[in-house]
Design a protein around this nucleic acid. Structure first.
Length: 817
RNA sequence: GGGAGAGUGGCGGAACCGGCAGACGCAACGGACUUAAAAUCCGUUGAUCUUACAUGAUCGUGGGGGUUCAAGUCCCCCCUCUCCCA
């Protein structure tokens, strides 16, 4: 239909090629034992209803990278799916009275089409939608396996609850200083609830080992930070009433400096030890503290507060009697919920002690000593030595830590301990649109897991999903009431559903064999070939959520014998965020949202792809520029015309031009290859642009020569990852066989890359005075000789003798006088 | 307060290992084509000064110091922005 003289019309060629690719199964990924595999994965989208430019920005370069690997000879798997459970579906249902299932599946259908317009190499036969029973059956199965191994447990504990989403949240989903909900930004409240947890803390130590993965330093440090390992000791402090309080400290070397002790207001011992005359103030403080976490935590009043319980503890190392306080700066969730306070060497203890006139006792001092009274806590560890610390006085802090710890162990009053900030993953959600937790409660048998053969526990489609703070399933009689699989008696189902992060913790395995019917969640043969994921791309905002969860899942799956490696994704790369043209975050309310569909309509998919790769440093992102995309469109138009429109009057090909073109071609292959390897998509496109500029320049002379044809073909191959539709059309019009995407990535010849002649700069004292064109292999003496005969250099030197001459081959000659 | 990242023309961004700062593109300006406009093509475009001229000079990668024949790049100090943790 298109003839050589037609203009570039993306709307004509793009859908045709996409159809052809589909018909010929070009992007079907099947096991090819003789070929090296490459599993490229991009984070699966939530089916919100419309594909966002952010999705394109994340996926297009990932697709180009996958295509590049494919052309380099790898058998590439690049699957896609939908993370389909979650709150927006339920909220839409409540607001507009559409069933979450319908809302979700309609969106999936729409987004599937939008994704297809991207022209990516997604293998659609491996698509997964996580809200389908064939998928969530396996989430439930994994839950049961975790339960069997003690990795899933239920516990009554204070948890974060979002009053807007009407559900509990995992610690990772609570963000910022004001502790707001990651989804809706509502400050969370504390509730005491019986909830399911995954024991991610069992893997805390292993999760700190990043030695097997190539992940951005940023993500690694965020995870390290999040897991928050601290080493120290636990120490038992006897109380007057015969009980003991255990504290965790990272500074056992300061034990002789303890002047008081602080319990978290919720600490179970508080009620037991509070004396009659302090009861009132302690109760009042506890109430206030609980309210404080229940109400929005206002701009954090830096002032520490607390009250005395009336009781005393004994410092086990020196027998000193120390008062026991409660204060809200001690958290029940960290360590043991109790601290020994050493005001001389801890900032928070210091300000607390000052406020309540508690003694401050120096036990660590630098060589030059400390001026007392202290004006601030002395917290340095490096050069401090223990003082006033009985037998340990004189030891450097670092050494003291170890010595004191072993002393505590010998005396039976403490032990070496490691504390992690990481807490177990709270996975229960009081919402309808999620995976039901496959647990049954029987009056006689207690907590009974649903037998494997009864999976999936289906989510009923006729529940009343009004958010009440309780799971809607609780009010669905047919779901709730069941029989105990053990004794056959009446029983009730667990009505909470799972955090949707569970769906995405193992989805990379589900792609191998979607909705697998076998005895395990995925086909072991597929797994043996494709796993683990070689390259994962997505946003950095998942650093402490999804990306920790999926590592945890993989380690747990390994221990279940389902996979045989330690890390799910070997390489991770994060893209940045595309902002609105006003440099603000895109949002409907700001009206600065860029719709990819409109761009595809206006310019075609390839232009959008090229612009998204060219416009920004991928890992940084930045504001959208609606004029900038014109440049990418012009580029593709120019490419079209250069390669397909014949010249009107042909010039004479010269050897020199031919060599120039050939050299540039090989330089371009080299740069494009290196840039794609390095995820430098912007310079990859720039290289192609530069080459097309040269093609345009030499076209009149070289058109239809062998060298030209070679250049045109190779250029088309280099363009294929970025603009797959256009490349396919050019390939066909150049008379080559379908498909360009099955071709081998071009190789450069290092000898042809090098220039024959180079221009070097002649400097005097570092200032450029002249330039010289010399053969690339010219020897130093010759260059010097030539340089000194230049009149510019002669006059600039003015007869002065050079003190030193520096020659950098191929670059410059610097004459120092 | 601690950690991570960033700061280069009017804008997005290039610059391998310390060696011509500003590739590539956007915008702008001038020209060609056109009855005209759009599109396209060709040229100019870091700043300041200088020249009769396509000349020449000085400054210039957030700021200040340093190392070096030579610094966007290495070292020290400081400032600003973004993210994470407290």
């Amino acid at each position: 239909m298109t003839t050589k003289y037609d203009r570039y019309q993306p709307h004509k060629i793009e859908p045709c090629w996409r159809q052809r690719w589909e018909e010929t199964g070009l992007y079907r990924s099947v096991i090819k034992p003789d070929k090296p595999k490459y599993y490229a994965l991009t984070m699966l989208p939530y089916p919100s209803g419309d594909l966002h430019i952010g999705h394109w920005y994340a996926m297009v370069p990932s697709d180009a990278q996958a295509r590049f690997m494919r052309m380099k000879g790898y058998n590439v798997l690049f699957p896609i799916g939908f993370d389909a459970f979650g709150l927006p579906a339920e909220n839409a249902a409540i607001k507009r009275n559409i069933h979450p299932q319908n809302w979700t599946m309609n969106n999936v259908q729409r987004m599937r089409e939008q994704l297809k317009s991207m022209g990516a190499i997604f293998d659609w036969q491996r698509e997964i939608v996580t809200c389908l029973p064939g998928y969530y059956k396996w989430s439930q199965w994994l839950f049961l396996k975790f339960y069997e191994r003690g990795l899933a447990y239920k516990k009554l504990s204070p948890v974060d609850f979002c009053p807007t989403c009407n559900t509990t949240l995992a610690r990772e989903q609570v963000w910022g200083e004001d502790r707001h909900c990651e989804r809706c930004e509502t400050p969370v409240v504390k509730k005491e609830l019986n909830q399911w947890f995954f024991k991610i803390t069992d893997y805390a130590e292993e999760l700190l080992d990043f030695s097997q993965i190539d992940w951005p330093e940023r993500v690694v440090s965020m995870q390290r930070n999040w897991i928050g390992k601290s080493e120290g000791a636990e120490v038992n402090f006897p109380l007057a009433n015969g009980e003991e309080v255990t504290v965790f400290t990272t500074r056992p070397d300061t034990l002789w400096g303890v002047t008081f002790m602080v319990l978290a207001p919720e600490h179970p011992l508080v009620d037991k030890i509070t004396t009659e005359d302090c009861k009132e103030q302690v109760k009042a403080y506890q109430f206030q503290a609980s309210r404080q976490s229940e109400i929005e935590r206002l701009a954090v009043d830096k002032e520490k507060t607390g009250v005395f319980t009336g009781s005393y503890a004994t410092n086990p190392v020196n027998g000193e009697k120390i008062p026991v306080w409660i204060a809200d700066y001690v958290m029940m969730g960290y360590g043991t919920g109790a601290i020994m306070a050493v005001p001389a060497h801890d900032e928070r203890d210091f300000s607390f002690a000052r406020k309540y006139n508690l003694p401050i006792k120096v036990v660590i001092a630098p060589p030059e000593g400390l001026a007392e009274p202290l004006s601030e806590a002395y917290t340095a560890v490096e050069e401090g030595r223990m003082v006033n610390s009985g037998p340990f006085s004189g030891l450097p802090s670092a050494e003291g830590k170890a010595k004191v710890t072993s002393y505590l162990t010998e005396q039976g009053i403490g032990r070496k301990a490691v504390n992690y900030r990481l807490r177990d993953w709270l996975i229960s959600r009081q919402r309808y649109w999620g995976t039901p937790i496959p647990i049954i409660y029987c009056e006689k048998c207690g907590t009974v897991p649903v037998p494997e053969e009864d999976l999936p526990v289906l989510l009923p489609d006729d529940a009343e999903f009004k958010p009440t703070g309780e799971s809607p399933l609780k009010h669905h009689a047919a779901f709730l009431h069941t029989v105990c699989p053990r004794c056959g008696g009446p029983a009730q189902r667990e009505t909470d559903t799972m955090d949707t992060f569970i769906c995405s913790s193992w989805y990379q395995y589900a792609y191998l064999s979607p909705y697998y019917q076998g005895p395990t969640p995925f086909d072991p043969q597929e797994a043996a070939y494709w796993l683990p994921v070689d390259l994962y791309t997505g946003g950095v905002e998942h650093a402490c959520m999804h990306l920790i969860y999926t590592r945890f899942f993989t380690k747990a799956l390994r221990d279940l014998g389902l996979v045989n490696f330690d890390e799910p994704m070997l390489t991770l790369r994060n893209q940045g965020i595309i902002l609105g043209e006003d440099s603000e975050k895109m949002s409907k309310s700001r009206g600065n949202v860029i719709a990819p569909d409109e761009l595809v309509n206006a310019y075609g998919s390839d232009t959008v792809r090229v612009y998204l790769m060219f416009g920004w440093r991928w890992e940084l992102g930045g504001p959208w520029d609606s004029r900038g995309i014109e440049g990418s469109y012009r580029f593709l138009n120019r490419v079209w015309e250069i390669l397909l429109f014949p010249v009107e009057k042909a010039g004479t090909p010269t050897k020199e031009l031919t060599e120039t073109l050939q050299r540039k071609l090989h330089q371009t292959i080299k740069r494009a290859t290196q840039d794609l390897n390095a995820f430098a998509f912007n310079t990859y496109i720039a290289t192609l642009m530069e080459f097309s500029n040269l093609l345009a320049k030499v076209k009149p002379e070289l058109w239809a020569t062998d060298c030209w044809r070679e250049a045109a073909k190779t250029f088309t191959l280099l363009l294929a990852p970025a603009a797959p539709h256009l490349a396919e059309e050019l390939w066909a019009q150049l008379g080559e066989d379908y498909s360009v995407h099955d071709q081998t990535w071009p190789q450069w010849n290092e000898e042809l890359v090098h220039e024959q002649e180079v221009e070097i700069v002649i400097q005097i004292n570092g200032k450029i005075k002249d330039r010289l064109v010399i053969p690339v292999d010219a020897d130093e003496e010759m260059v010097k000789e030539k340089a000194f005969t230049l009149t510019t250099i002669q006059t600039a030197l003015g007869g002065k003798a050079p003190r030193k001459v520096i020659y950098v081959p191929g670059r410059l000659l610097n004459i120092v006088v």
